[in-house]
Computed example of a mutant assay.
Amino acid sequence: MEAWLAQLIQDLLTALALPQVGLVAVFIITFVSATLLPLGSEPAVFLVVKADPSMFWPVMAVATVGNTLGGITSWWVGYGAERAVEAVKHREPPNPRALAWLKRFGPKACLLSWLPIVGDPLCAVAGWLRLPFWPCVGWMALGKGLRFICFTAALLWLLPESWMSWMQ
């Protein structure tokens, strides 16, 4: 059983090392994980880079684009939801303090879109509040890109090789 699992992991790493497979997988996973669906993209990004370290920058670019497009999708979902609710009835927002905070910081708050749990809804709320689209996209991309670069670099260069022995 252990040999089978080791072979499965090795085959997966070999497939992910191929740019045409790894980059597509990274794009799809990072896109979906940036929507309101619960999915983490860091393991996929890390595995592709670990399988082929020379792909570090292309993977960072694809992950950032995929994750930012997912954030944009959430922004549009929030924008559409606000318009739908507004058309049905006008009511007081559920958390006026949080909305006031987001309005005060404006699009710059989207820099925090990389945070677990609150980041994806933050993009939707930015759309709900009709914060300016392109500045929100810029701040989302910056935050998400820096997150991928820092997280992946830290795992690659700070974790002891003995922790990665299961990948051999």
Rank of each mutant, 00 (worst) to 15 (best):
R97W: 02
W128S: 12
W163R: 09
S54C: 07
V125T: 11
Q7T: 03
L39W: 00
I28T: 08
P107M: 02
L69Q: 10
Q20F: 03
A98K: 06
M167S: 13
L47C: 11
N95H: 05
T68M: 11
L36A: 13
W157Q: 11
E161H: 07
V137N: 09
M164N: 07
P94T: 13
S165F: 02
L111E: 02
I72Y: 03
F151G: 07
V24N: 03
S33P: 01
A100I: 08
P116G: 07
C110F: 00
A84W: 11
W75D: 09
A124S: 09
I28P: 00
V88A: 15
H90F: 03
V88N: 10
G127A: 12
G138Q: 06
L146Y: 02
V21K: 08
P121D: 11
L13E: 04
L23E: 08
Y79D: 14
A34L: 07
A109G: 11
R104N: 05
F56M: 15
N95P: 00
G22M: 13
E92D: 12
G143W: 01
L99Q: 06
S33V: 00
I9G: 00
L16Q: 05
I29D: 02
G127V: 12
T30K: 07
A15V: 13
L39I: 14
E42G: 10
K89Q: 09
V49P: 10
T73V: 12
K89F: 01
W114Q: 10
L5K: 06
V85K: 07
S41C: 11
P107D: 04
L142I: 15
V85H: 01
M60S: 03
I149C: 12
W76L: 15
M60A: 06
C136A: 10
A84R: 13
V45K: 06
P43E: 09
G22W: 05
I29T: 11
N95C: 07
I149W: 00
V24C: 04
